[in-house]
Design a protein around this nucleic acid. Structure first.
Length: 288
DNA sequence: CAACCGTGGAA
DNA sequence: TTTCCAAGGTT
């Protein structure tokens, strides 16, 4: 079962893979690291233009390390989860100071960098340096969950069973290509909402499809409403700082959110997170 | 470990 | 219009 998944998926990938800039041979480890962090919870189409601009502006870790952290946040634009921009800037400074300007190649060293968890460390070690690691992102978990476990959606948190399965599937040679191939299958065919099973290279073996594509039982899906949350408020406040050329008076922040208590809480949160700072004259700006 | 952390496009 | 969720990580 395990072995028979590889060939059809790798053959499918050879024909259907997208030509993404961070997958090209000329992509640097730094470019790959930047792409992986930008892609956390963010669709490819929105990452593409920002990644391209970043690579032109900051082609090396040293280049990013040389500017203020606020510049990273400013050029993050509206990608979302802006602390990732701060993490990337901190990565650049750590790589410059502690790794001679080279992105570390080992999983363990990568894992020590801010904002790099299990998936991103495995992805960079694998895709940038050719190392063999199990890639367990949301796509892979969904594909393997369906194909092998026969369930529509994977568990909320990664289980040891999922990890063992992914590791058991690692080929002796070509682990990076295998990892990206399964991810791509999940992104283009074995999608969360309307999977295109008719186009799937492993449809004849997929446990979920063979079982008649049973709907996810268990608890109902989570509904994370966004309107009115602190997150939305933080986003509004940060947008003001990002779009301003210099420091802004507090009144400029006050006008974008009506609820005073929530606004103050959100602003304090931004300051605590290092995404904004107050100057001695009481004005606010991105971190300098 | 559940909650939190943005944003926008598709269904 | 509302809901879902997209190459996660941290606390």
């Amino acid at each position: 079962m395990a072995i028979s998944l590889r060939e059809p998926i790798l053959d499918w990938y050879a024909e259907h893979n997208r030509d993404l800039p961070w997958r090209r041979p000329e992509a640097t480890p730094w470019g790959i690291l930047v792409s992986e962090i930008m892609l956390q919870q963010t669709p490819v189409v929105r990452v593409l233009p920002v990644w391209t601009e970043w690579m032109e502006r900051w082609p090396t870790p040293e280049a990013l390390a040389a500017v203020a952290p606020g510049e990273a946040v400013r050029h993050w634009g509206r990608l979302g989860y802006p602390r990732r921009a701060l993490n990337l800037h901190a990565c650049a400074r750590a790589i410059t100071a502690d790794h001679r300007g080279r992105v570390p190649s080992s999983y363990d060293e990568l894992r020590t960098l801010p904002g790099i968890g299990d998936y991103t460390a495995a992805a960079v070690a694998s895709f940038a340096y050719g190392h063999s690691h199990a890639i367990l992102d949301t796509n892979v978990r969904r594909v393997l969950g369906r194909a092998v476990r026969g369930e529509e959606y994977p568990p909320k948190a990664t289980t040891s069973g999922e990890r063992r399965l992914a590791e058991s599937l690692l080929p002796a040679v070509g682990a990076p290509r295998w990892g990206v191939a399964v991810m791509e299958l999940g992104a283009l065919v074995c999608t969360a909402r309307a999977p295109r099973c008719d186009d799937c290279p492993i449809m004849s073996q997929c446990a979920w499809r063979l079982a008649g594509r049973p709907a996810h039982d268990g608890p109902v899906r989570r509904g994370q409403t966004y309107a009115g949350t602190d997150r939305q408020c933080r986003g509004r406040l940060l947008a003001v700082l990002r779009d301003a050329h210099g420091p802004v008076p507090k009144e400029a922040l006050d006008v974008v959110w009506a609820d005073h208590v929530q606004r103050e809480r959100a602003l304090d949160g931004l300051l605590d997170d290092g995404l904004a700072e107050v100057l001695t004259d009481g004005t606010y700006r991105l971190p300098g």
